[in-house]
Simulated scan of single mutants.
Amino acid sequence: MHVYDTVTAALADLDTRGYQLDFNLTPDALECKEIELRLMPEEFEIDEVYRFEGMTDPADSAVVYAISSNVGNLKGVLVDAYGVYAENVSPDLLDKLKIHH
């Protein structure tokens, strides 16, 4: 497992390791707009998780997920603030994220 000081450093290194797509949360899936793809919880794995605490503001806390999928052999990242997704996503997607949170 790698150690990073900032979200930017984590994203830069993950990019060099092939995690090049940007995923966003939708209510029931991960979405990658650049390739018009939606991944349901059973279609992806969370390979690595990095947590960042806001030094002066807890609202600056974030989680970086390194995600891979056998659907198209894809790799990408999801950046999310702590707890923001909790009430906005399906139980299946929430369970998948919480396992690694």
Rank of each mutant, 00 (worst) to 15 (best):
V49G: 01
G76V: 06
D47F: 14
R38L: 13
V63N: 06
T8C: 05
L25H: 03
T16D: 10
L14D: 00
D22S: 08
S90K: 04
M40D: 05
L97K: 12
E34N: 14
S69W: 06
L94R: 15
I99Q: 07
L93R: 06
L94A: 15
L94K: 15
L39R: 07
K96E: 04
E31Y: 14
M1P: 04
E53S: 13
P91E: 07
S61W: 07
P27Y: 10
V3M: 10
G54M: 05
D92W: 08
R17V: 10
S68M: 04
P41N: 11
G54Y: 05
I99C: 06
G76R: 03
E45Q: 13
I46C: 01
D13E: 09
D57H: 15
R17G: 02
T56G: 05
E43W: 07
L30N: 03
T8M: 10
S69Y: 11
K96N: 05
F23L: 12
P27M: 00
L74G: 01
F52P: 03
K96S: 08
A9V: 00
S68N: 03
A9S: 10
A81V: 03
T16L: 13
M1R: 08
A29D: 07
Y19V: 00
E53A: 14
D15E: 09
F23Y: 15
Y85L: 00
F23M: 06
T6S: 15
A62S: 15
A9T: 00
M55I: 15
Y82S: 04
L93P: 05
V71I: 07
V3L: 13
V77T: 13
D5N: 14
T26C: 02
H101F: 12
D47E: 15
E31M: 11
A62I: 00
V63H: 02
N70Q: 08
E43S: 06
N24W: 07
S61R: 09
D5T: 00
D95N: 09
E36T: 09
D80W: 13
D22P: 00
L78N: 01
L30D: 02
D15W: 11
Y4Q: 03
V64E: 01
Y82R: 05
V3R: 06
G83I: 14
Q20W: 13
I35Y: 14
